[in-house]
């Protein structure tokens, strides 16, 4: 069953380039993005900084209003929900933020932080708070309830943030680089916790990350974003083992391997020059691509299915 279905999602940010310029400039932060996530699956959204992956995440939890497009969660389109309806729907979607030092209010104790979503939805229940803390491994809960976030370690903070996200039983969770600020030895712990929770609650998760190795470990499917567009998406192992898009290939070839004997081949591409401000009709990856053809300059390639459940947006295929 499809839990999340995103259709033609677009977000433009207006840009005032010059003081008296009448021309309208837009940053195409997210440009015509479509994907589906099955119930109980984790989809990884991978890309470099500024590719629009965090904007996509914020659109899905409606922290930002989409410029156009549809977001179906459990067959309900939430792209245009407003006011009370939106507030009611919010209990279904939660978000885990990147930096646990920043995503917890420094003046709240753990109890207040975890209780807040319940209070907002009018579902306050002490037992739920205890359960949520236990589920994320903060045991015994009494010991943590009255602490401020600065009295917790980094790993504990992120656990509190996860408890807060799960306390109202959401069906869909967006995790925006939840482990990138954590230390190596703690990171694995939090990743495993997320996997265990997914299994336990049959959660559907969008996992945003810049780290392909983490994405491979966490996700069932992966979508690679470049300058506001999804350039490739499909099964996680398939993307890692058999990448099609030149950008995905370059990205994968740049991941260091923790084995001194493994000699990987680097694919040399240039640094990013163009940004997503009023992009021309051509392929966004054009300047950096080693395989560019004439057509790439004229037309943006459509995302097509090159083999089963493997989609790629490149003129080399199809």
């Amino acid at each position: 069953m499809e839990m999340v279905n995103v259709e033609h999602l677009t977000k433009l940010f207006p840009l005032r380039k010059r003081l008296f310029s009448r021309e309208k400039h837009y940053v195409y932060a997210v440009d015509d993005v479509s994907f589906k996530i099955e119930k109980g699956k984790i989809m990884g959204l991978v890309g470099e900084s500024g590719c629009g992956k965090t904007t996509t995440a914020k659109l899905l939890v409606r922290l930002l209003d989409p410029t156009s497009g549809n977001i179906y969660i459990k067959n309900e389109n939430i792209a245009d929900l407003r006011g009370k309806e939106l507030k009611k729907f919010r209990k279904n979607i939660q978000m885990i933020f990147q930096d646990p030092y920043e995503s917890l209010n420094p003046r709240f104790i753990v109890h207040d932080t975890v209780a807040e979503p319940l209070i907002a939805q009018g579902l306050y229940n002490t037992e739920k708070i205890y359960n949520a803390l236990e589920v994320v491994g903060l045991k015994p809960p009494e010991e943590f309830l009255f602490r401020y976030s600065h009295e917790l370690s980094g790993g504990q903070r992120q656990r509190v943030a996860i408890a807060r996200a799960l306390v109202i039983d959401p069906i869909f969770v967006v995790a925006d680089e939840p482990t990138s600020m954590l230390d190596v030895s703690i990171r694995a712990d939090v990743l495993n916790l997320l996997l265990a929770l997914r299994k336990k609650f049959d959660l559907t998760v969008l996992f945003v990350t810049h780290d392909l190795a983490v994405a491979r470990y966490m996700c069932d499917s992966i979508a690679v974003m470049y300058l506001g567009k999804i350039v490739e998406r499909g099964n996680a192992e398939e993307i890692i083992k058999n990448p099609k898009h030149p950008y995905t290939k370059a990205l994968l070839s740049a991941v260091p391997i923790p084995n001194p004997k493994a000699k990987r081949k680097r694919i040399k591409i240039g640094e990013r020059v163009s940004d997503a401000v009023n992009p021309p009709e051509r392929c966004r990856f054009y300047e950096r691509c080693n395989y560019k053809k004439d057509i790439c300059k004229r037309k943006y390639p459509k995302l097509i299915e090159c083999c089963k459940d493997h989609f790629v947006a490149c003129h080399l295929y199809g």
Binding site: V184, S185, R187, A213, L252, P258, N259
Partner: peptide, 9 residues
Amino acid sequence: LMSSFPSIE
């Protein structure tokens, strides 16, 4: 440390 790192290989 070594077993807490995911790899793409």
